[in-house]
Design a protein around this nucleic acid. Structure first.
Length: 268
DNA sequence: TCGATCCTGTAG
DNA sequence: CTACAGGATCGA
């Protein structure tokens, strides 16, 4: 169920656990895991390749190979990727067996994730629809305003639109709005400059803290992150008191997704 | 821009 | 049992 912080965690974990490894064999344990590509393509292009580096774009984990190809792992709702020493976990969909021993397993119970491979030269096209990276030092209030403020749609669903700003999912979009005291139903086009500034700052702060906390909480387990809801102020807390004003946290539906917020201190 | 949908696990 | 889940995509 990863958003940017969990994806970032997995990348850093792989950097520690699997730096410089070579893929000896690729096993696609569920055909649909490679999306519109054939499993044979992934096997052909990744087998025998050393992993030059791990990276991240939006919520995807990237394995940069020495043959100028990149494996893109879209985590979906339940995807995790990490190195295991022995047998892969039960819901592993793709296994990269390593020459050094062990396996990089893509473990994805709900099977919404995808593992695809692309020539590096094609990556700009592959990622062409993705918006700004919020943790880039270049990400500015101006970027946020440019990508969101033309729409009259409610701000919360817009924050989930990966063609505008990437990395926020249902949890951290709600958290960023709470932190900046913006009503999730407020039309994006009506936010004031001061609100945009606060929202920008909140997005960066919330994601940065989530990355840190995820790493902190799980830094002694070599596997996947969990319990990263510790710092959530609104997500999953409907009916409980707001940590700022003690008002009751509400749960509503927007664009088919649940939105948690405080109707008192996030009022317009 | 919305609703449905792809699947499986888990909470109520 | 039903409802719901942190994502992404597709057609209307």
């Amino acid at each position: 169920m990863p958003e940017l912080p969990e994806a970032e965690y997995m990348v850093r974990r792989l950097q520690l656990d699997a730096s410089g490894v070579t893929i000896e064999r690729v096993r696609v344990l569920r055909q649909s895991a490679t999306g519109s590509q054939r499993p044979s393509r992934l096997k052909r292009l990744a087998t025998g390749q050393r992993i030059r580096a791990f990276g991240r774009r939006a919520k995807s984990v990237l394995l940069h190979l020495e043959n100028a190809h990149t494996v893109r792992v879209q985590l979906g709702m339940t995807g995790h990727i990490y190195r295991v020493a022995g047998d892969e976990p039960p819901h592993t969909r793709v296994a990269f067996d390593l020459a050094e021993g062990g396996t990089i397993a893509f473990d994805d119970p709900r099977t919404f994730g995808k593992v695809t491979i692309h020539a590096d030269a094609d990556l700009p096209t592959v990622f062409g629809d993705l918006g700004h990276e919020p943790l880039d030092s270049a990400f500015s209030v101006k970027h946020l305003i440019e990508s969101l403020s033309q729409s009259r749609a409610p701000i919360k669903p817009l924050l989930l639109d990966q063609s505008r700003v990437v990395g926020l999912g249902n949890i951290w979009a709600a958290e960023a709005l709470w932190r900046s005291r913006v009503d999730p139903f407020q039309p994006a086009s009506s936010l004031s400059p001061a609100q945009w500034r606060k929202l920008h700052q909140a997005i960066v702060a919330v994601l940065t803290k989530a990355v840190d906390d995820t790493f902190k909480v799980t830094s002694h387990s070599a596997e996947f992150p969990e319990a990263d809801l510790l710092s959530a102020a609104v997500y999953g807390r409907s009916g409980q008191p707001c940590r700022r004003c003690k008002g009751a946290i509400a749960k509503v539906t927007q664009a088919g997704r649940s939105t948690f917020y405080c109707p008192v201190c996030q009022a317009r």
